[in-house]
Every structure is written in structure tokens, then in C-alpha cells.
Nucleic acid binder design. Structure first.
Lengths: 210, 210
DNA sequence: TTGAGAAAATGACTCACAGTCATAATACTT
DNA sequence: AAGTATTATGACTGTGAGTCATTTTCTCAA
């Protein structure tokens, strides 16, 4: 219960995550080793395993930061005064900023999206990052509902369902842009921005309805 | 130049890919080893490396089959007589069938979508699978154009751009369904089909325009 | 048919890395 | 200051990708 001890523990925990971000982000998680993280953190490898049960668990800590950062930016950008539709436009814009300004965090979310590393065998304390992700979806759903009430968004959408669909669609398009733009550009004369803008236009179009 | 020799070579190549599908699909690529593939194929490990330069290269051969299968099913399902819009609906349905009937191939495409393993250092003979993927996008673009000509699809979309966006969106939604449905169902009362149906409805809505 | 040279196949080996654990260092308590 | 608990360590183990010296199989000219 010694608070100072807990503080030291928390600090070391965060320091390890800091080191992991440096290493994973610079070489990619697959090419980065725990030895490198340990060295970066100035610790022995064994120590890492006192704080994280596996390399994936360490990665999940980064994922948590990614979701938390995104959620915070959403919350900061929202304006209660605005219509639901306007706020939806806002979070789309914020999301795009996040994509450009925190590419590594965005990448972490992408990587998570493609993995099944959330076998329900995972202890519940290790699922905090999930709650952050779900909170983002729910935020979107709330905005859609609000927009339906104030008349700025069509009424025939189930809010939570639509929020998931938009999330999935947007992740898909941004994934395409992030990972495959070289191919797209090679085979057709298209720029990343064109695809992104088009996608956002379509979502706005769908939100408004006829 | 000995044709019989080439045939034997091709057969062995395909046999290795068959073995790799069995092993990779049953354990997941990350948990499958080249030794296991070799054993499944009844060959020594070294032999695999005469046919494929790496585990990833072997995986790309599977990816090629995945794209080729999908493309074939698209082509079989299309009906020249129909409007562009009807044919777009058709390929969306075919795609969904593919998702359900060839989950492993679908998964391979997903995995590809999330990886950068297409460093442009890749020899061009190893890029055939890419051409298959691009062909699918172009097929979609053609249908959109046709629909614009016959009036069944709105005119203010750039066909190729829209094809990429729809592809990205659809991959994103299906990825969400395939990888994260357990979470979605846990936090909200939603079924995979609801999300998929909603997504397809939205695409159709967007294609038609106001 | 044979045997020499080419082509294909092999599996023991190397190297890199995740995760473990017996031991060492440090911190806390009285 | 001694004893106990906590935290840290890095040598070690196991696994798997990829290599390569050696062996086996094929080819074809004589």
C-alpha cells in the first residue's frame, strides 16, 4: 500500500512503454526485439517481464495510449452547441488529423484491428484498452443520436450500428491509404487525399440522407 | 526448355502451396512453421526454399490464389445485360459469399491489406498477385462507369476513385466483423449480419445518389 | 547400358529472438 | 545492523527462419 512505492512502479511502467514506443515505432513491432527495448529503457530484459507478461502485452499498453489520445482529442474538439451532424464532421476531421499527426498510434490501432490477440482468455485488467476503443464508438453513436434529434442527421439509422459501420469503413479506407498507397499510385493516378476526401464526402452524404 | 520438366516443377510448386494452405490455414501463419509445411508436403525444408525465397513469398502464392478465386467468381456472376448498378449489387453479394465461403482466402487478403510486405524491392515476377488485386478494383470501376452511362449510378463519382473507396470501406467493415465481432457483441447487442447489411445498404444508397 | 556432369533435394547447422529462472542487488523494517 | 521481502538481472532454453555442404536423382552422349 506504500504510495511512494506504487508511484515508482507506475513511473517505471510508463518508462518502459516510452522505450517500447521508441523502439517499436522506429523499426516496426516485428523487427524490434525485447532486448532492444530493455537496452533503450536501461533495464535488464527480465525486468520488462515483471511489468508486462509478453511482448504483445507491452504492445497493448501502447495501444491504450493510442486510443486514449484519440478519445481525448475527440472530446476536446466537440462543441455541445453544434448539431450532431456538425460534430460528426468535427470528429471525422479530428480523426484525419490524428492519422496525419500520430501515424504511429494510428498504426497501432490498425495493427490491433487486424489481430485476434484479444482471446477472451485475456485477464480483465488487460482489457482497459478495449474500453477506450469502445468509448470512441459510443461517442460516435451519441453524436448520431443527437443529430437525429436535432434533425441534422437522417432518422433511419440505428446509431450504434451506424457508428460501427462508419468506424469500420473509415479504418478500411485509411488502412488502404497507409499501407497500399504506393500500389494505388503506381497503377492509377490517384493521391491519398483524393480517396480520403471522397470517403468523408460519402459519409457526410449518408448521414444527411436524401 | 524441357516441357515435362517444367510441368513437374509446376506441379511441385502447386503441391507446396497446397501443403502451405493446409498448415497456415489450420494454425494461422504466425503459428505455423516451415518445417510443418515441409512435413505436410513430404519434402525437406530446404526444398521449399528452392521454390519460394521466404515464408512470406509462400504466403504470397496463397494470396494470389485468393485474388484469382475472387476475381473468377466476380466474372462468373456478372451479367452483361444488367445495369451497372445491378452488377455492382451482384459483386457486393459475391464478395459477401466469398467472405463466408472462403474465410481463409479472405483472411489472406486481409493480412495482405495490413502489411507492407510489398516493398518495391520485390521482383516483378513476385508481383503477379498484385495484378490480380488491381484487376478486381478495375472491374469495379468499369461497372461504375457503365452504371453512369446507363443512368443507374450517379454521375458525380470518379469511377476508379470510388472503386478504391468502396473496396477500402468494405474491407474495413468485414475486417471488423471477422476480427472484432466478439468485442462488438460483448459490449453491444449487435450481430455481424446487421453491420454487413447496413454497410451494403449504405453503399447502394451512395451509388444511386439522391 | 553406362557414367559423367547437371539439377534437384536434403537436413544438420547457424543465428536471432521470446520468454524463464536461479542468483544478485536493493529496499524496507525493527 | 541484521534479516526479510521486493525488485532486478542476464545467462540460458526452446523454437523457428533461412543456409549450404553433401547426397540423390535425372539427363544424355557415347
Amino acid at each position: 500500500m506504500g504510495t511512494p512505492k506504487d508511484i515508482r512502479k507506475k513511473q517505471r511502467y510508463e518508462a518502459i512503454v516510452d522505450a517500447a514506443e521508441k523502439v517499436f515505432f522506429s523499426k516496426g513491432i516485428d523487427n524490434a526485439s525485447m532486448d532492444q527495448v530493455a537496452k533503450q529503457a536501461g533495464l535488464g530484459k527480465g525486468t520488462l517481464y515483471l511489468y508486462f507478461e509478453s511482448k504483445n502485452a507491452l504492445y497493448r499498453a501502447i495501444l491504450y495510449r493510442a486510443f486514449a489520445t484519440l478519445k481525448k482529442q475527440f472530446e476536446e474538439a466537440l462543441d455541445e452547441e453544434n448539431t450532431g451532424f456538425e460534430n460528426m464532421k468535427t470528429i471525422l476531421r479530428v480523426y484525419l488529423d490524428f492519422f496525419y499527426n500520430h501515424p504511429h498510434y494510428f498504426n497501432a490501432i490498425l495493427h490491433f484491428q487486424n489481430d485476434l490477440f484479444n482471446l477472451d482468455a485475456m485477464a480483465s485488467e488487460q482489457q482497459i484498452y478495449l474500453a477506450e476503443g469502445v468509448a470512441i464508438i459510443e461517442l460516435g453513436a451519441q453524436l448520431i443520436e443527437k443529430g437525429q434529434q436535432d434533425g441534422s442527421i437522417r432518422n433511419d439509422l440505428k446509431a450504434i450500428e451506424a457508428a460501427y459501420v462508419f468506424w469500420g469503413q473509415t479504418m478500411g479506407v485509411l488502412q488502404l491509404v497507409q499501407k497500399k498507397m504506393a500500389i494505388v499510385t503506381h497503377y492509377h493516378q490517384l493521391e491519398a487525399d483524393q480517396l480520403i476526401v471522397q470517403h468523408f464526402k460519402l459519409i457526410e452524404y449518408v448521414l444527411k440522407g436524401s
